[in-house]
């Protein structure tokens, strides 16, 4: 982006953003589910122009040695070059790893999935839940879109049936994956001293740092400060307040589905 545009965003951020929103407005988020029949669960999230597709696959695996009685959640993200000229193919870089891990943390720490229920035989066999996040179009705030996609896909996920010989039968299902809460991530970015909700790709070119806050009904379940800047405690609290307020609205919206 040219320097004058960057300066324009910085100078006007407190009054008006390029797309007409105020610093407190979240773009319209919509979710389409179950569009990948071959996946156990799937969701396509559209947040403004950002599009993120999330698929859930389930497979059998051996549990970790220190937790033999719980299933395994694996969250992975990919920034395919399809979504932006800035994305390159190849192994995930640190931004992509951070995206996957922060989404993972929100789901895991919310306690919305009882992983004990995904144990088939203690110490030997458990269900592994793979959440794969694929970015289709990047217009900023991939974190919130990916998190909404992950929980929406999990909400639609079904558990494949086990054959008598212990193999997976993907043509029949053994009920739904039980999801008891709705963790919602809301990102607030710092631009020129203003805490701005849901940054676009243009705005992400000038942000100094971000605070990702994931909330559930009972409180906050995951946070991450990202970017090389400093935040005051007050700014962090603003990000928390944004997440609580927006989380309430989005939970209502996603529950209706």
């Amino acid at each position: 982006m040219i320097e004058t545009n960057k300066n324009y965003i910085r100078q006007n951020i407190a009054i008006k953003r390029l797309d007409g929103r105020t610093y407190k407005d979240f773009r319209k988020l919509s979710v389409e589910t179950n569009l990948i029949e071959k996946a156990e669960g799937s969701a396509l999230v559209t947040l403004g122009e950002t599009k993120v597709l999330v698929g859930v696959k389930m497979d059998l695996g051996t549990p970790f040695p220190d937790s033999g009685d719980v299933g395994i959640l694996m969250t992975n993200a990919e920034r395919s070059p399809i979504a932006s000229p800035e994305f390159e193919s190849g192994p995930p870089n640190d931004d992509t790893i951070e995206l996957a891990r922060v989404v993972d943390r929100g789901i895991r720490e919310s306690g919305c999935i009882d992983f004990h229920k995904l144990c088939i035989k203690e110490g030997e066999k458990v269900w592994m839940v793979f959440v794969d996040i694929s970015i289709l179009n990047n217009d900023g705030n991939l974190f919130d879109a990916a998190a909404a996609g992950a929980i929406s896909a999990l909400l639609t996920a079904k558990i494949p049936k086990l054959n008598d010989n212990g193999t997976v039968n993907r043509s029949e299902y053994d009920g739904a994956l039980v999801v008891t809460d709705l963790p919602i991530m809301v990102t607030t970015a710092l631009i020129n001293g203003v805490m701005v909700v849901d940054p676009t790709a243009d705005e992400e070119e000038v942000i100094e740092g971000r605070v990702h806050v994931t909330s559930i009904e009972a409180g906050i379940c995951a946070m991450q400060k990202s970017g090389s800047c400093e935040f005051t405690e007050e700014q962090i609290m603003t990000a928390i307040d944004n997440s609580i307020a927006m989380g309430k609205e989005l939970r209502k919206q996603l529950k209706k589905k």
Binding site: E109, G219, A222, Q224, K225, E230, I236
Partner: peptide, 29 residues
Amino acid sequence: SDLPIAMTSTDKKITLMQLDGVMTKAEIQ
């Protein structure tokens, strides 16, 4: 839950913050 936070020595601003696990806003404060 676990909330690690890094602060600068000069003006005590926050430069690292992560949270794993559930806390209310009041508990975070």
